[in-house]
Design a protein around this nucleic acid. Sequence first.
DNA 1: ACCCTAATCTTGAGCCATTCAAGATTAGGG
DNA 2: CCCTAATCTTGAATGGCTCAAGATTAGGGT
Lengths: 155, 155
Amino acid sequence: MLPTPEVPSESLIRAAGMRVTRQRVAVLDAVTTRPHASAAAVLESVTLALPDVSHQAVYDCLGHLTVAGLLRRVTMDGGPALYETRTRDNHHHLVCRNCGLVVDVDCAIGAAPCLQPSHSAGFVIDEAEVIYRGQCAQCAAAASSTPVSDEVGEA
Amino acid sequence: MLPTPEVPSESLIRAAGMRVTRQRVAVLDAVTTRPHASAAAVLESVTLALPDVSHQAVYDCLGHLTVAGLLRRVTMDGGPALYETRTRDNHHHLVCRNCGLVVDVDCAIGAAPCLQPSHSAGFVIDEAEVIYRGQCAQCAAAASSTPVSDEVGEA
DNA sequence: ACCCTAATCTTGAGCCATTCAAGATTAGGG
DNA sequence: CCCTAATCTTGAATGGCTCAAGATTAGGGT
């Protein structure tokens, strides 16, 4: 069920005009297989393939890949930055207030900025980011069936 | 031009069922006169009235006032949390990518959640936060008239 | 295939925003 | 005016991220 990249990470990195390093390939692979991963989660994944990667290398790779447009960086409230490979479709996110689950939502309009504010105060707007907050199916079910509990219920 | 509170901070705090302390009044006053202030900015403002406030007191006050619904906490990208007194009108924000200026935008719809995602993945959504990103009038003008410059131009 | 050099990575320190913990102060009901 | 829990002060600690210096390495040139 994990996404099988249409184009291998190495090709994407090379196509972006960047040097192809094991660290970059591993970082891009990690985000591809696990979207919405934090830098710490990426470090954990990458360490499986490259036991000696430094966290700094992970931050550098994430930064460079983001600038190159191969990754998109999003932050939910004050939490750590999350990374994903869907970069140019202007999609939005659903975030569970309870468990932190992040799910993509396609943008109904499509191209950015998909919304226009009621008044722009002179701003030249290029993007409208939307974050839907609430409870995911599991947390909502758990909350209604067992009011005071931390159980997660069945999958 | 600074907002003159309709109801003094002290009354609001008391009405919320909280103890009225100098620190809380000063913190609420600070956010009222300077919306979108960070904890550090609030500490700076509060220090003018209470030279010996601790930063911890500021964090405590901001936290309690937020839980009580007297303040709303928003975070722009990875920056420090910003606080504002408009709490229940579901308004949104314009953020300048260049200078960080944050401006309120009324929500065209009104009540939260003002938007519905194209598919909710089972989520029970209670809020849709919108962040419009771009350049403020000043930065946009500076960018188009003097391509490589940091000047701010006239007000 | 081998150099060479800038780009990248490793190591390790440092910074900022925020939180934790323990003891002193204080608001406000009785 | 007391009393006690809520709040504040002080000081240390954490997490996420960035800075800096030196070692390694990708990949164009020969």
